[in-house]
Design a protein around this nucleic acid. Sequence first.
DNA 1: TCAACTGTTATAATACAAATAGAACAGTAA
DNA 2: TTACTGTTCTATTTGTATTATAACAGTTGA
Lengths: 127, 127
Amino acid sequence: MLISVNLQSDVPLYTQLTNQIIEGIASGRLAPGESLPSVRSLSSDLGINMHTVNKAYAILKQDGFVEIHRQKGVVIQHDLPVADAAYRTSLEEKLRPLISESICRKLSEEELLNLCRSLFRQIQTDS
Amino acid sequence: MLISVNLQSDVPLYTQLTNQIIEGIASGRLAPGESLPSVRSLSSDLGINMHTVNKAYAILKQDGFVEIHRQKGVVIQHDLPVADAAYRTSLEEKLRPLISESICRKLSEEELLNLCRSLFRQIQTDS
DNA sequence: TCAACTGTTATAATACAAATAGAACAGTAA
DNA sequence: TTACTGTTCTATTTGTATTATAACAGTTGA
């Protein structure tokens, strides 16, 4: 899967990486068991530091999206983490300010739901 | 409206403030024309620095949610900003990683939409 | 007029996170 | 052995978040 970073963005580089990899899993472009590039090769390809890639991989490992095989390096987990109560709470806390502002800006409930539905399907079928 | 901050949170204080005020507008607890506490009184009440509150107010002013009256201080805008194309794009960029992870965690499209709908109505009617 | 309040600005210091840099270690594969 | 894997260590630079003090211009009410 093709991975890139935007040095101008205010989103931290390691967050850009984790976001892209998680979207890759969601879309099926990254299948369970598949290997990710090594920290050294990916950092070299992107022109960024090794430790930045390592931090992204460490977060993905921490959250249960990847596991480390001494042989194959970093591979996508077969048993991906599921949406438990704690996750749903944190998701709500992240959605709340976004939905609040959309209400202020007179986005209707239907428009918001259509946007979410459209994104959901676009990500899921973007393999 | 009651405003509070969580010093333990990893969300910046000024972001906590802007989020709460925007949610207050969305819910109707803060009506257009209504005044916000002065930077000095609010910072004193919350036990934080004046500049932190001032930064939050400056962002709200920048985004068009409040205006400055030399007499009344900081008041909620009558003509609130609307959801233009630029806003929709930025909203999509913020929703995308959240939805991607929810797909990874096997949250169904219906569950996600129900959560968004529930939040939308809860915020809107929470006055 | 005077005192008390408004937002605003300037300067400085502290603390922390993000990113980079160079180096080394333990384990594994060809 | 050589070359690769993730991991860890120390150090530096940069930028943001937060606090601290101070001052300014304008407004309000006594």
